[in-house]
Computed example of a mutant assay.
Amino acid sequence: MSMGSLSDDDDFNPEINTTPLVDVMLVLLIIFIMTIPVMNHAVKLDLPRAANQPNEVKPETINLSIDAAGKVYWNNEILDESQLAARVADAAKVTPQPELHLRAERTTPYEKVAQVMAAAQSGGLSKMGFVTEAPKK
C-alpha cells in the first residue's frame, strides 16, 4: 500500500481539510482587530514643560537708490563711489548681514545699476533685492 495512491478500496485520504483551520484563523483575526485599538502601548510620563522662543534677529535693511542722473543714495544720504565701497565693506562685516534693497528710476542707465551691483558683490554683500512699483491699472 503506497501513501500517494488513491485507490477505491483504501479509506486513507492524504489531503488535509483546511476549512476548520481557516475558520479559526478568521476568528482570531477578528479578535485581534477588535482588541488592538483598546490596548494602549504608551508609557505615561510626567515630562518637564519648557517654553521655546526662537531668537530670530532680523537683518537690517539698506535702501540703496539710484536716480536718473546716476547719483547713489544710501538710506536717503547721497554718496560717491569711494564712500559706497566703504559703506558696503562695513555692512558686510555686520552679523547678520543686512539686506540691500536696490531702487533705480526707470530712466537710470543700466551701466550705473550694474556698477552698484558689482560694488555690493565685491564688498561682500550677498543679499540683494530689487524694488519695483506695481503697474497702474
Score class of each variant (00 low, 15 high):
16 I>N: 08
17 N>C: 11
17 N>F: 11
19 T>G: 07
19 T>W: 00
19 T>Q: 14
20 P>Y: 10
23 D>N: 11
23 D>V: 07
24 V>D: 10
28 L>K: 11
29 L>C: 07
31 I>P: 04
32 F>I: 12
32 F>R: 05
35 T>G: 08
36 I>P: 00
38 V>H: 08
39 M>N: 04
40 N>R: 10
41 H>T: 08
42 A>V: 07
43 V>L: 14
43 V>S: 14
43 V>W: 13
44 K>C: 11
45 L>N: 13
48 P>H: 03
48 P>F: 04
48 P>D: 03
48 P>R: 06
51 A>C: 09
54 P>W: 05
55 N>A: 14
55 N>I: 07
57 V>D: 06
57 V>S: 14
57 V>P: 06
58 K>G: 00
58 K>D: 12
58 K>E: 14
58 K>M: 13
59 P>D: 08
60 E>W: 00
61 T>E: 13
61 T>W: 01
65 S>V: 03
66 I>G: 00
67 D>V: 01
67 D>A: 01
68 A>Y: 04
71 K>D: 02
73 Y>D: 04
73 Y>F: 02
74 W>F: 02
75 N>C: 09
76 N>L: 01
76 N>D: 06
77 E>L: 02
80 D>I: 02
80 D>Q: 01
82 S>L: 14
83 Q>E: 15
83 Q>V: 03
84 L>E: 02
85 A>N: 09
86 A>L: 06
87 R>D: 10
88 V>D: 01
89 A>S: 14
89 A>D: 07
89 A>E: 15
89 A>I: 02
89 A>Y: 06
91 A>D: 02
91 A>K: 01
93 K>V: 12
93 K>C: 12
94 V>N: 05
96 P>W: 12
100 L>S: 04
100 L>T: 03
102 L>G: 05
103 R>K: 14
103 R>P: 03
104 A>S: 10
105 E>I: 01
107 T>C: 09
108 T>M: 00
109 P>L: 03
110 Y>A: 14
112 K>W: 04
113 V>E: 07
114 A>V: 07
115 Q>V: 08
117 M>V: 11
117 M>E: 15
119 A>V: 05
119 A>M: 10
120 A>N: 11
122 S>Y: 05
124 G>S: 08
125 L>V: 05
126 S>P: 02
127 K>H: 08
127 K>T: 06
127 K>C: 03
128 M>N: 06
128 M>P: 01
131 V>S: 07
131 V>A: 05
132 T>H: 06
132 T>I: 12
134 A>H: 12
134 A>G: 04
134 A>E: 09
135 P>E: 08
136 K>F: 12
137 K>P: 07
137 K>S: 15
